[in-house]
Amino acid sequence: MAKILVVDDEEHIRLLYSEELREEGYDVITAEGGYRLLERIDRERPDLVVLDIKMVDYDGLDLLQDIRNKFYDLPVILSTAYDTFKEDMKSIAADFYVVKSFDLSELKRKIKMALEARTSE
């Protein structure tokens, strides 16, 4: 069972993602921000991270860089309310991005692709 870490400062998003992704058969853990995120990843070894870009205390794109520097092969999917982040070239270090929605089919599709890419090497 693949383990997914959802990082988002909005509780209802964490709940929604957890519930729906667990129904898909994933093991889901959550974090509400970037505090000690790298230590958490190191300890819990998720197979994929779903990362919110705009959190109150953290910039998701900076966190993405931190994750890439330490766990350069770990799939990361950016989750965002707006797609303006693409103006920042840092976003190319993500595997995919999804625009936040209550319909998670796109997120689920991208998770599947990212996990397949990881295991096909």
């Binding site: 890439r68 350069y72 840092k90 190319i92 270090a93 595997d95 692709m113 890419a117 090497e121």
Partner: peptide, 14 residues
């Protein structure tokens, strides 16, 4: 032929 999807490559130098 075993590779299915692509993944990103780490970026340095921002």
């Amino acid at each position: 032929q075993k590779v299915r999807w692509s993944k990103p490559t780490a970026v340095f130098g921002f």
